[in-house]
Design a protein around this nucleic acid. Sequence first.
DNA 1: ATATTAAATGCAAAAAGTTTGCATGTAGCT
DNA 2: AGCTACATGCAAACTTTTTGCATTTAATAT
Lengths: 150, 150
Amino acid sequence: MQSIFLLNMAIDIVKILHRHDLRSTTARRLVLKVLVDGKKPLTHKQILQRIKEEYDSINLVSIYRIIQKFEELGIVHSHSRSGGFTLCSLIGDSGHHVLLSCEQCGKVEECMDKELCKKENEIAKENGFSPTSHLNEIIGVCESCQLCNT
Amino acid sequence: MQSIFLLNMAIDIVKILHRHDLRSTTARRLVLKVLVDGKKPLTHKQILQRIKEEYDSINLVSIYRIIQKFEELGIVHSHSRSGGFTLCSLIGDSGHHVLLSCEQCGKVEECMDKELCKKENEIAKENGFSPTSHLNEIIGVCESCQLCNT
DNA sequence: ATATTAAATGCAAAAAGTTTGCATGTAGCT
DNA sequence: AGCTACATGCAAACTTTTTGCATTTAATAT
């Protein structure tokens, strides 16, 4: 795999990797770049597709391993969903991940909410749990599908 | 498959099925009974195991189909989790499902919370979503594992 | 620059979960 | 009891995810 595109890759990407004591490999840079640019949760396959379209080909297995590593280090969250796929999203510092998934068009959006996070920590506490992370999914019908239905 | 145990099966089970216009088959009664008795989320395989242990053998495929049907009718929720398995739990009328899963011992508890439900509906509304259901998972360390760690 | 070494990747194949097609069996009804 | 539509079992397909091993590569020292 070549690294032609390394030059115009945001420096942050490499920084993030080094900050976590990760070797800055081409595959890792690409996965991270796609997640940053994507600005929304992606499945492993989608990550692969985007990398293929925009850059070069890498192996799906590597994406699994990279995501796993990123997750261990707290760089991404992966969220298993019914239907047999898993969404991966960057962990920001803006609070708590909530997935809004439309049961009609299948679109998945993501939003953040700090209050929800707080509330969940309370629930954890009430049950004797020491929380490390949360996952939320709200299933419903999105705005555009609601309009179509009328 | 015999129906020896049909006699001492709570009448509610059959009622629930009929209320949803479902044929009261042995397999469905067993799945429902195990979920009711279990009082906690179970995977498809766990449901199968319990049925095998306590009653008779049925096919895993049937469990998948039964759970799918139950889910369509709003009798159960299934919650995909990282690690490649899906938990099925009865939908009660006590509010909102929250899974508390311990990352050390793997134990999964379930609790209900109406406020969380309300908060999530607000979030959905803010994002133009018309919510139909929610899923929550709080990952952390349970009480007993915390004690072991000290 | 080159060599070294531990770590990361690619490939193939296995493993696990889930779905599908089809023949058979059964619940609910007459 | 017989009919019919629906449910189940079985085998096999399909999808996602994991694993083992040989090869390649990043980071470091020479």
